[in-house]
């Protein structure tokens, strides 16, 4: 039940999938809010929360990827799909994983380059992984924003594909990821 089988996703993969789905939507809204708010004493801590939640996301995504290797997912259902659609679906999955890793990493690099300590909810300070540099900070925050937008687009594509399979092709793709 925990592991993926030939027909269905196991419980671990399902939990990773849906928890991260909610998490990413939440972080996207959180990030957009941070970028738009007027910064003051009352909301300064939100930057640290975003960084801490981002690092937790990076951990979850790494564990999810590791699990994918330990317990490979069921094969893609090909019936009713054109070759280019299957290729696009595959590319979307690769992009989603790449972006899910890249987003927290670029945020971590940019925050490190800013020279401001990253505290994990006050428990300990996370090591800074880039030397202080205004150029690095700006460049990687630009990447961070770009990857955020790209991730939102690929999530939309992923959702569109899943809904098409569920409502048009009426196959098991979405159901086998559900509980």
């Amino acid at each position: 039940m925990l592991r993926n089988s030939f027909e269905k996703y196991g419980l671990v993969a399902k939990i990773f999938h849906w928890v991260l789905a909610l998490y990413l939507v939440g972080m996207f809204i959180f990030g957009k809010y941070l970028a738009s708010m007027t910064i003051g004493f009352s909301n300064l801590h939100l930057f640290n929360w975003h960084k801490a939640f981002g690092l937790i996301a990076l951990t979850l995504i790494s564990l999810r990827l590791a699990w994918r290797f330990i317990s490979p997912p069921p094969p893609t259902l090909t019936e009713g799909s054109r070759a280019w659609e299957l290729k696009l679906a595959h590319f979307t999955h690769v992009a989603l994983y790449g972006l899910m890793l890249g987003l927290p990493l670029t945020g971590w690099i940019a925050s490190s380059a800013a020279g401001i300590d990253i505290s994990l909810f006050g428990f300990f300070n996370v090591p800074l992984i880039a030397p202080p540099s205004e150029r690095t900070e700006e460049l990687f925050f630009d990447f961070h924003r770009l990857l955020g937008v790209l991730l939102a687009l690929f999530v939309a594509l992923h959702v569109a594909g899943a809904l098409k399979r569920h409502f048009v092709l009426r196959d098991m793709t979405l159901r086998r990821m559900w509980f």
């Binding site: 800013a114 020279g115 900070e137």
Partner: peptide, 8 residues
Amino acid sequence: TGALRGPK
């Protein structure tokens, strides 16, 4: 303090 010591 971080911002003050930082590159900007």
